[in-house]
């Protein structure tokens, strides 16, 4: 327990001191939101209605950036020999990954806060009750946790920090094939099934419905996807970490 707490303290301290990480985690999502709302918003509908639509999508997009930097910092530790020191000490193997994951969640929380704050300034007027807010953030948290463990696993297998950053490519791309920025109904029929059934769509739909105080239709599906992904990613990452000593 002390080991995990110490590792969490370490990862948070290291992210605080890594300016790039902070930029990536906060400024980029905010800029993406401004881009979507002001550049595309007018074409898609009105700026006002689009900001209400797009905020959940931006929040999920920013988790992708967060996950990428998590994978990169894990790989950095793996390659720098720091991991050898920790592994030769009598501490639980995955406390190092736990530290990275918790720091990742913390960075995401900060990014979420910044995005929501800027969105409010841009005219975002969510109708959610406090309970709706708590539920929406809860759904997002579970998703971020799952994604962070997945990223940690990528970080362990990646051969270099550069290849870990490739995760960002997928993370950047996948949200576009969902209901994050435009309704799925507007996509061509062959693409629709993919976008409807990929894990990000129910998460976004649930967060959006909760924030805009509309009936939630895909809540259980979102929880099942995130929960399932969390269990699988946690299992995969810790299994990978345990396997390092075969090399």
């Amino acid at each position: 327990m002390t080991a995990s707490l110490t590792m969490i303290g370490r990862s948070i301290r290291l992210s605080r001191r890594n300016f790039d990480l902070v930029i990536m985690a906060i400024v980029l999502p905010v800029m993406m939101m401004a881009l979507f709302v002001y550049v595309f918003g007018g074409a898609i509908g009105s700026v006002q209605s689009y900001v209400d639509y797009v905020v959940p999508g931006i929040l999920v997009l920013s988790t992708g950036y967060g996950a990428t930097s998590t994978a990169m910092s894990v790989t950095d530790d793996m390659k720098k020999g720091v991991v050898d020191r920790f592994r030769s000490m009598p501490i639980n193997g995955f406390s190092l990954l736990t530290g990275h994951v918790v720091a990742s969640v913390a960075r995401n929380a900060l990014a979420t806060f910044a995005v929501v704050l800027v969105a409010l300034l841009m005219g975002f007027r969510p109708a959610a009750s406090p309970v709706g807010w708590v539920l929406a953030m809860g759904v997002l948290l579970l998703y971020v946790l799952a994604l962070s463990w997945l990223a940690a696993g990528f970080g362990v297998v990646a051969r270099s920090v550069e290849s870990a950053s490739l995760l960002g490519f997928f993370m950047l791309f996948i949200p576009y094939l969902s209901s994050a920025f435009v309704p799925v109904e507007t996509m061509p029929s062959w693409l629709r099934p993919v976008s409807e059934h990929q894990p990000i769509t129910p998460v976004i739909e649930t967060v959006r419905a909760l924030l805009n105080d509309q009936p939630v239709s895909s809540g259980w599906l979102a929880l099942a996807w995130s929960g399932g992904l969390l269990v699988a990613a946690f299992g995969w990452s810790t299994w990978l970490f345990g396997r390092i000593n075969r090399r």
Binding site: R10, R13, L14, R17, N18, K80, G81, V82, D84, R85
Partner: peptide, 12 residues
């Protein structure tokens, strides 16, 4: 263990 490459955190 003190490995071949100093296993220290640069940013701490």
């Amino acid at each position: 263990l003190t490995g071949q490459y100093a296993a220290v955190d640069e940013e701490q």
